[in-house]
């Protein structure tokens, strides 16, 4: 965990409401694991006061990237930053995804009744499901999983085509990619969770609960790279997801139905990101009791069996 008060912005990309910043911060880059996050100070003025949490989207030896959507004051200020300006960042923070690499502490813990998390994912199919800005940590995770010999299949959903700015980048890195849009403007017509359900049902040989994946009608650019995914028939060894609460809850139910171990990167409004304020609590089940745990310290990634999902809220569906 490091504080870097002056990480220079080396590169910036903008797509409408989405923005990517590449920051030079060797100390943070060196320690970063997929699923971990950083606390970014967007302004040295007292408004907005608090740092904002962002997942680590990618890293090289010297750099870390964040990918975010503009949703309010802080992210709008951040999207105005220019190459050459510096940002005050703290990271890497929290516990990330369990990959087969055994890099995270958590990889050593056993999950009762599930696939052993420490088990190698080499040669195995894994699903990465990102809704909107939730794709951010999955790119880093996908690259890491590939290095370990796993075969990640990325499900990337958004409201409309312009909510999928990273599709090209993912394809350029030869990920097996399936996209969905709520309005059908690209890929599967429907929620990302429905796309995952259709795919799992297909693998299971079940009648489709949703229209079958018919990629022939999709515009050529958004057609999935199927070769890798379909070479490995059968269920994924694991599902990793990040996105709107409603999407993750549905993915959790699906993973549960098919007995697939799943992990979710949760969001919470954060005061400090370092475990000092108890502001980021979520109800988490550990053993036989559920309690408010700090997302910034115990998470942000939690296992399916740990998360106590919030009640359905009608207007939260695909709000990102």
């Amino acid at each position: 965990m490091h504080k870097d008060p002056g990480a220079p912005i080396l590169r910036k990309e903008r797509w409408g409401d989405y923005c990517l910043l590449c920051l030079k911060s060797p100390a943070i880059a060196r320690e970063a694991r997929p699923g971990q996050f950083m606390m970014v100070r967007v302004s040295d003025q007292p408004y907005p006061l608090l740092r904002r949490p962002f997942s680590i989207h990618a890293r090289t030896r010297e750099t870390v990237e964040i990918f975010f959507s503009r949703v309010g004051l802080g992210t709008n200020i951040l999207a105005q930053k220019k190459t050459g300006e510096t940002l005050d960042i703290i990271g890497p923070l929290g516990k990330g995804f369990t990959t087969g690499g055994g890099g995270s502490k958590r990889a050593k813990e056993q999950e009762p009744g599930r696939l052993a998390p420490a088990e190698s994912l080499n040669g195995k199919k894994v699903f990465l499901v990102g809704g909107g800005r939730g794709i951010a940590p999955l790119y880093f995770l996908g690259l890491e999983l590939k290095k370990q010999g796993a075969v990640p299949i990325i499900f990337y959903g958004g409201k409309t085509k312009s909510d999928l700015p990273l599709a090209d980048r993912l394809k350029a890195h030869k990920f097996a990619l399936l996209v969905s849009t709520d309005d059908g403007s690209s890929g599967f017509h429907g929620f990302a969770s429905a796309m995952v359900e259709a795919e799992l049902n297909r693998v299971a040989g079940l009648p489709m609960a949703f229209p079958p994946l018919d990629w022939a009608d999709a515009p050529r650019k958004s057609r999935p790279v199927r070769a890798a995914s379909y070479a490995l028939a059968g269920f994924p060894a694991r599902v990793f997801a990040c996105g709107p609460e409603a999407m993750m809850r549905k993915i959790a139910a699906l993973a549960d139905r098919y007995g697939i171990a799943a992990e979710f990167s949760l969001e919470a409004i954060m005061g400090c990101g370092i475990g000092a304020c108890w502001g980021c609590a979520r109800k988490i089940r550990r053993g036989d009791k559920a309690e408010w745990l700090k997302v910034c310290q115990e998470g942000p990634v939690f296992k399916s069996s740990e998360v106590v999902w919030e009640e359905d809220k009608t207007n939260e569906v695909s709000d990102r």
Binding site: P48, A268, I269, G271, W278, G279, C280, A281, R282, W292
Partner: peptide
Amino acid sequence: GNPPPRLAE
């Protein structure tokens, strides 16, 4: 403690 959200700026 209290249920979330616990913070508002």
